[in-house]
Every structure is written in C-alpha cells, then in structure tokens.
C-alpha cells in the first residue's frame, strides 16, 4: 500500500520546525510503523537527504523509548500499543498520516520526532525509590503482600515512561505517570517508609518541570500503551493531600542530603 506522511521536521532544539510531506510507497501491511519509517529513511538517505529522527530501542513495546503522535493520537490508533508494536495493517492504502512529536514545555523537541524526556527521570530521582538493605537477596516471601495490593502495584508498575500520557493530555499533565510511580511503590509494604516524602517530592518535581495540572479528562488513560488506570491519579492525590496537610506551611530541608 501507499501512504502520504506529513512529518514534523526540526533540525535541532533551537531551530524552527515545520511539517513536510513524504510519500511512503509499497508499504507491506506486515511492517511495524517504525520499519515503515526505516524504509522511508533509507530512501531519504539514498537521495542525499536527512533521515527522519525518531527514538526507539527495544521495538518490542517494553522500553518506553518510542512514541509520537499519529493523526493526533499518541502511539497511533491501536489501543494498548506502542508505536513500535503498531503494524501497518492498522492503516489502509491511501491514508494520510500526520506525525508529530510529543508537545509539552517539559518535553522540548530535540530533533524531528524525538523529545527530551529527562524531566521524567528527574521526577523518579525525586522520590521513585525505596530504601533497601544491600547484601544477599531477601527471602522470597519474607514480607507478605496482600494479593490485591500486589495486583494494583503491578498494574501501576507496568508504566514504561514513554510520555504518551503527557502528549495526549489537553493540559500537558504528567499526572498519570507520577500517579503510576507513586502508586506502584506506595501500595507495597517496602514502599511505606518513604510514602509521604515520596508523594511530596515527586509532586513538587512535577511542578518544577512545568507540567500542567490534571482535570480528570481521561485522554491519558485511553492512549497509555500499558492501560494504566486513572485510579493511580486518585491515589496520588490522596497520598499528596494527606502528606501535604500534615506538612502544610513548612519549607522542609532534605533530611537525608
């Protein structure tokens, strides 16, 4: 099949960008979306032009590197699927596709479809950890975890940090991501020691990164390749409101630093 692509081209972070049109010819329905772009890029290289930059690594939907908007939908039309796992059989001959990078102040475009997502790493560094003793591995079942908590924690832990939630959110909010990270550890016994501090610090970092605020719209949940539920945002709100009320007015210095 043949497709028309309109792709955001931007040479570097500080350069202006614009949409450019490309024809993708003889596309096999069995190709993944990224393989289709590989073929387009080979032709661009053969023609002496700059290939389209997009981020990718595992290409099996687990690392969270890939992702861009296809016709205004993060990761494209297939639910629960990263763009690397999206196949061209999801499209039809003659389709016209608009490819754009994630758009958020906190995710500056580095080049073409690739954005800088270090803001997510800084949010994790702010509180997305637990304190654990080093040394030999602990006994498997030494700490009992209720089944319901472990299921919910696993659902939240499925987040691969791709950034689709921010991209899809009309407010450019990172609530689904931070909610997933805060819930994942906050649901487990191992995560209790830092639970309040984690919520306070990670939410503070989200704000420092200039993400928007959540208005419970739900676009994020719909595009999340791991189907992280909005419930994680309610859990984050609960943890944060509780911790922040106890702590109100205080400007705390970091005890551990």
């Amino acid at each position: 099949m043949n497709l028309t692509l309109h792709v955001w081209r931007q040479a570097k972070a500080s350069a202006p960008g614009r949409m450019e049109r490309y024809e993708a010819k003889d596309v096999s329905p069995d190709m993944s979306f990224l393989e289709m772009l590989d073929v387009v890029n080979e032709k661009l290289i053969a023609d002496g032009k700059t290939p389209i930059t997009f981020e990718h690594d595992c290409r099996e939907g687990i690392c969270g590197s890939c992702g861009f908007m296809i016709n205004g939908v993060a990761h494209g039309p297939k639910s629960g699927t990263t763009v690397c796992q999206l196949h061209m059989r999801s499209f039809k001959d003659g389709d016209e596709l608009y490819l754009e990078p994630w758009r958020a102040k906190a995710f500056p475009v580095l080049k073409d479809l690739m954005v800088d997502r270090n803001a997510f790493d800084r949010i994790i560094a702010a509180g997305g950890y637990i304190t654990a003793r080093t040394g030999s591995a602990p006994d498997g079942n030494a700490i009992p975890v209720p089944k319901a908590s472990s299921d919910q924690a696993m659902d939240a832990a499925a987040c691969i940090g791709c950034g689709a939630c921010v991209a899809a959110c009309p407010n450019a909010s990172a609530a689904l991501f931070s909610g997933a990270k805060i819930s994942h550890l906050g649901l487990l016994p191992q995560g209790q020691a830092e639970r309040e501090r984690r919520a306070l610090r990670m939410v503070a970092q989200v704000k420092a990164e200039q993400f928007g605020n959540c208005t419970n719209i739900g676009e994020c949940e719909a595009v999340c390749p791991k189907h992280i539920p909005l419930a994680v945002i309610a859990r984050m709100n609960r943890d944060y409101l509780k911790a922040s009320w106890k702590d109100r007015g205080a400007v705390k210095q970091d005890e551990s630093a």
Partner: peptide
Amino acid sequence: MSPATAAGSQNRALRFFEATIVKK
C-alpha cells in the same frame, strides 16, 4: 543525569497552596 536541574525545588516540600493538587 543530574537530578533537579529544572528549577530544582525537589529538596523541599512545596508550600501547601502552591501545589496544583491542592489548588484542584
């Protein structure tokens, strides 16, 4: 990667009313 390069308030709790969650 250096944490808290962006505006860096990670080492303190936000004042109660500064947080968007509280505003909301």
